[in-house]
Amino acid sequence: MTAFAYIAAAIAEIAGCFAFWAWLRMDKSIWWIVPGMMALALFAYLLTLIEAEHAGRTYAAYGGVYIVSAIGWLWLIEGAKPDRWDLVGAAVCLGGAAIILFGPRAV
């Protein structure tokens, strides 16, 4: 469930932010912000589904998933192929997210 919630949250956040980008930077209709706001609300809700003791740790680990998802968006939606530095950076961030989320904690 954790992986699903993180991935779905990332897609919702990127889609929501892209809606605002499209409106402000691509001269799309102002109506693009309506689904954008809905997507951002969904993003916030999905992060509450993560099983973690502290919200800050959940958000910190999410950062790595978001970065990998943003690189995927860049490639799949915007048609710009990631370069090796995009991929290396995303891998480092995802590794950091895994350490934050799954690292052993003193009880």
Rank of each mutant, 00 (worst) to 15 (best):
G95Y: 02
L94V: 13
P82L: 03
A10T: 00
Y59P: 01
L46V: 12
V65P: 00
G36I: 06
L24D: 09
P104Q: 11
A5C: 15
R105Q: 12
L24K: 08
A90D: 06
A5Q: 08
I77E: 12
Y45N: 05
A41N: 10
H54M: 09
A44N: 12
T58L: 03
R84C: 02
F43N: 09
A106K: 14
F20C: 05
A39V: 04
R57I: 15
Y66K: 08
A8S: 15
L24H: 03
I71F: 00
M1R: 13
A60W: 04
W85R: 14
A80M: 13
Y6V: 03
V65K: 02
H54K: 11
P104R: 11
L47Q: 09
H54V: 12
S69W: 01
V68L: 01
I99F: 13
A97K: 03
A8D: 13
G16R: 07
A12Y: 11
I100D: 02
L87K: 08
A61D: 02
L47E: 05
V92C: 09
T48V: 12
L74V: 04
F4S: 05
L40M: 10
I71D: 00
K28I: 00
A39Q: 10
E13H: 10
I11F: 11
G64L: 02
R84D: 03
I100K: 02
P104D: 09
L94G: 06
F4R: 06
M38H: 05
A106R: 14
A12I: 13
G63H: 03
W31E: 12
Y62K: 08
V65E: 00
E78C: 06
A106S: 15
A70K: 00
R57H: 10
A106Y: 12
A8C: 14
A10Q: 00
G96C: 07
F18Q: 10
T58C: 07
R25F: 14
R105P: 04
S69A: 15
L76D: 01
A106P: 10
A91Q: 02
A60E: 06
V107W: 07
T48K: 11
L46E: 07
A52C: 06
L46C: 11
G64V: 00
